[in-house]
Design a protein around this nucleic acid. Structure first.
Lengths: 184, 184
DNA sequence: GATTGACATGTCACTTCTTACATGTCACTT
DNA sequence: AAGTGACATGTAAGAAGTGACATGTCAATC
């Protein structure tokens, strides 16, 4: 019954920091920023912007070259975003394939389980490197990119900590399995 | 084009450790175990079990009292589960309302941002207490519940670490915002 | 002048997920 | 005998999300 707001909130936030932008621009910026915390493709973004326009949260200003529609956040949209951030307790329902593999891994033989955990560690390390590079780039251009301020910075920090946590967890779990299977 | 397997994998895993069970039993056990990593209700579980039966991954043995259908994992089902664990690299697409709030929080005034982060910390602490109690209970009955072995234990450990990470992150972020707004 | 490729916006079919509704069984109480 | 409540299995409508397809613009190259 209650509409899931996350996508529209993400778009409102992105549009707020970007200033007036086309759907195309938003979709591009989306995949290198907000997509790290809320995945969505252009086939979801375009219809959502249309609905948000109908609901008065954003408005189309000028229509630029090549049929670009330039969206801006309306006062209603700003209020909606603020309300969601201030009043909405985020739902905790999880759906993570990584966590599911972690859950099920004891069903395998110790050797196989260790192999799976090693793969998980490797991909977490790769992800970590990506995020750390992103943060390094952000810090390097911090003075130039004042426009964005700390937008996304705390989430990036959280992502880095969580991913480091996965690497450490994988190490400890591998050690645990080897200890248990060695003594068994 | 490629089917999302997570729900059927979760059910195969649960059915493997539970032994032959009814859909009802599976749904009950699901919500206190696998649901922590992959949320699903009975209205998704019953149809999925039917599809899995059609695909030969599980089979209905006896039909017990009150129309209970007792499912078991078939050799094909076991193979499917093993294959997914061994060969499938989990997709990394995230969709977390908490992380989205973390992302957008710099759009608020410092005071408001701190309030939001405090709320996030509180709910993370509550979640942490829940998970730690779950682990304490598991350890207490470890000898009796040999049936389940380490099933779910590594995921629980990961969840506890991640949730502790959120608490620490919230503390550090609050301190960061207060420092920045104090000197500004 | 034709082709290529980035720009730009959308739709469509399909799967997945959520909430609420619907139906019936059986044990135990009153 | 009737009622309550846990047991047990489903369906249905609609929202959300995915991947592929469709269409057209414009600038630069060949």
């Amino acid at each position: 019954m209650l509409r899931c707001m996350s996508l529209r909130i993400a778009l409102l936030g992105l549009l707020t920091v970007s200033g007036p932008s086309s759907g195309y621009d938003l979709a591009k910026k989306f995949e290198t920023s907000v997509a790290h915390v809320w995945q969505a493709g252009h086939s979801q973004i375009y219809p959502e912007l249309a609905k948000m326009t109908a609901d008065g949260l954003v408005a189309v200003g000028a229509e630029g070259a090549r049929g670009r529609k330039i969206y801006s956040v309306t006062p209603d949209g700003e209020a909606e975003l603020r309300r969601w951030l201030l009043d909405h307790s985020p739902s905790t329902t999880t759906r993570s394939e990584t966590a599911l593999q972690a859950f099920l891994v004891p069903l395998l033989e110790p050797g196989e389980a260790v192999a799976v955990l090693r793969r998980m560690k490797t991909s977490a390390q790769a992800h970590l490197a990506e995020l750390e590079e992103l943060r390094a780039m952000r810090e390097a251009i911090a003075d130039l990119a004042g426009r964005w301020g700390r937008f996304g910075a705390y989430a990036l920090d959280l992502g880095i900590r969580q991913t480091r946590g996965v690497v450490e967890w994988a190490d400890d779990s591998i050690a645990d399995i080897e200890r248990r299977s060695g003594t068994a």
